[in-house]
Simulated assay, not measured.
Amino acid sequence: MATNPLTVLVVGATGSIGRLVVAEAIARGHTVRALVRDRTKGAQSLPTDAELVTGDVTQAETLPDAVAGADAIVLTLGSFGTGSSSPKAVDYAGVRNVLTALTPSGSTRPRVVLMTSIGATTRSSSYGHLLEWKRRSERLVRASGLTYTIVRPGWFDMNEPDEHQPVFLQGDRRRSGGPADGTVARTDIARVLVAALTAPEAANRTFELVAEQGAAPSDLDPLFAALDQDPPGSLDAVHDEANMPLDDEPQQIRDDLEAVRAQTAA
Rank of each mutant, 00 (worst) to 15 (best):
M1C: 04
T7K: 12
G12K: 05
T14W: 06
S16H: 11
A23Y: 03
R28L: 08
V32I: 10
R33N: 00
V36L: 06
Q44D: 08
S45T: 15
P47H: 07
P47Y: 11
T48C: 14
V53W: 03
T58L: 01
A60S: 08
T62M: 05
L63D: 01
D65F: 13
A68E: 15
T76E: 06
T82V: 08
S84I: 15
S86D: 12
P87D: 09
K88W: 13
V90C: 04
Y92H: 13
G94F: 06
G94P: 08
V95M: 03
N97M: 13
V98S: 00
T103R: 07
T103D: 12
S105I: 06
P110W: 00
V112C: 04
V113N: 04
L114I: 02
T121D: 09
S126L: 13
W133Y: 04
K134P: 05
L140N: 07
L140D: 07
V141A: 00
R152E: 11
E160S: 14
P161N: 05
P161I: 11
E163N: 07
V167W: 01
F168W: 02
L169Q: 10
Q170E: 12
R173D: 14
G177M: 04
G178L: 08
I189T: 14
P200H: 03
R205V: 14
T206N: 09
F207I: 01
E208I: 05
E208A: 07
L209E: 01
L209Q: 00
V210L: 13
E212C: 08
Q213R: 15
G214D: 07
A216M: 12
L220I: 02
G233R: 01
S234K: 03
A237N: 00
V238Y: 05
H239T: 06
D247L: 05
D248Y: 00
I253F: 15
A259P: 01
